[in-house]
Amino acid sequence: MSVQDSAFRGFANPVDPSPAELRAWAYEPDSVPLHTMPKDWDLLVSGDRLITTLFDLAMDRSCPARRFALHCLYIYAADGIRTKFQAHPKRRLRKLVEQAERQGDEQMAIWAHNTRMLQARPELFDYRDWCEGGLVRQARRLG
């Protein structure tokens, strides 16, 4: 039995999961329900170390935790833009946005559009939309 064939058994440290653990959980999210995770877990994992993994998960239409990954992308984008890229590199966010525009489906295209809109007009930031999942639950293009 390979490592991929075995069931996900949890995080060694849920506050600081590895990319492999996050990916494994994302394909078996019921193995460790979100409500059992540390408070603000979405904010904790939405950093530079895991953003590539989260992006890949959000791009995968078959990923059971895709909405969670997309939610984390909104947090990451808002955090970078609102801190004038002190929190996250501008270049990394730009590359993710460009890749979402080129290869993503409608949900990813909306995320890319909204990220560009927030960068152009920071007053569009609304905590509920960007950090509490509003733009994932009710997908819409900001104007």
Rank of each mutant, 00 (worst) to 15 (best):
R49C: 01
P89N: 06
R91K: 12
E28S: 15
R91D: 14
Q103A: 13
R49D: 12
G134C: 06
R23V: 00
G47T: 13
S6F: 04
L70P: 00
L50R: 10
R116P: 00
S2E: 05
N13Y: 06
D42G: 14
W25R: 03
E28G: 08
S46L: 04
E98N: 14
F55C: 04
V15F: 09
P17T: 06
D126I: 06
E98P: 01
D129K: 04
Q107G: 04
S6D: 01
V45Y: 05
Q138N: 15
E101S: 11
R67L: 08
L93Y: 08
Q99W: 00
D126K: 10
L124R: 15
D60W: 03
D56I: 00
L142M: 13
P64W: 09
N13H: 12
Y76L: 06
Q103H: 11
L135E: 13
D105T: 04
T36H: 12
F68Y: 13
E21A: 12
Q138A: 08
K84A: 13
V3T: 08
A87L: 07
H88V: 11
F125S: 09
K95E: 10
R91E: 15
T53C: 15
V3M: 04
M1A: 13
C131A: 10
V32L: 04
C72T: 10
L57T: 06
I81N: 11
R66F: 02
E21H: 03
F8E: 09
P33G: 07
Y74E: 11
R94N: 11
M59Y: 01
S6H: 03
H35I: 08
P89G: 13
S62R: 13
A65S: 15
D79C: 11
D42P: 02
G80P: 09
S31G: 02
L54T: 11
A139V: 08
I81T: 05
R91L: 12
A20Y: 07
M59P: 09
S2W: 01
S2C: 01
W25T: 09
R91F: 04
M117I: 04
F8G: 07
D16T: 09
E106V: 10
V32I: 09
D40Y: 11
A7D: 12
H35V: 12
E123A: 15
A112F: 00
A109F: 00
L50V: 06
D40N: 15
D105W: 03
H35C: 05
T36K: 11
L96Y: 05
R141M: 13
D126V: 09
E101A: 04
L44A: 13
A20H: 10
R140V: 03
G47D: 14
